[in-house]
């Protein structure tokens, strides 16, 4: 639905290597500030709804705080099995964070 960018909050509200969640596109999205840019994935862990924005972030992955499933922040793939979360495009514009659903990826 959202092929255009939507402003969702202040970039300054997401500290380095942490995540914060926000409502977007009918669900909640976790936005992470990485050393080399931003990443955005579903906030809810498909395993048992753990809050992924509260997870520990390393260079390219986040670990769910509830049972330790680990997701690649670029691909959304869960380490070691089939599971995955959706990824979103995220960018910073004039101090604001903007999100959009990747146009290329279907459903």
């Amino acid at each position: 639905m959202s092929e255009t960018w939507t402003e969702v909050g202040y970039a300054a509200d997401v500290p380095m290597l942490e995540g914060r969640s926000v409502a977007f596109d009918g669900g909640r999205i976790a936005i992470f500030r990485l050393r080399d840019g931003w990443a955005a994935i579903d906030h809810s862990c498909p395993h048992a709804d753990g809050p992924l924005a509260d997870g520990i972030v390393a260079d390219s992955c986040v670990t769910c705080p509830l049972h330790g499933h680990r997701y690649d922040l670029r691909t959304g793939l869960r380490q070691g099995d089939e599971g995955s979360v959706r990824t979103y495009e995220v960018r910073e514009r004039d101090g604001m964070l903007e999100l959009r659903v990747p146009v290329a990826v279907a459903g």
Partner: peptide, 10 residues
Amino acid sequence: VTPKQFSALD
């Protein structure tokens, strides 16, 4: 100690 330490972005 961090922005939004006890809340979400929104």
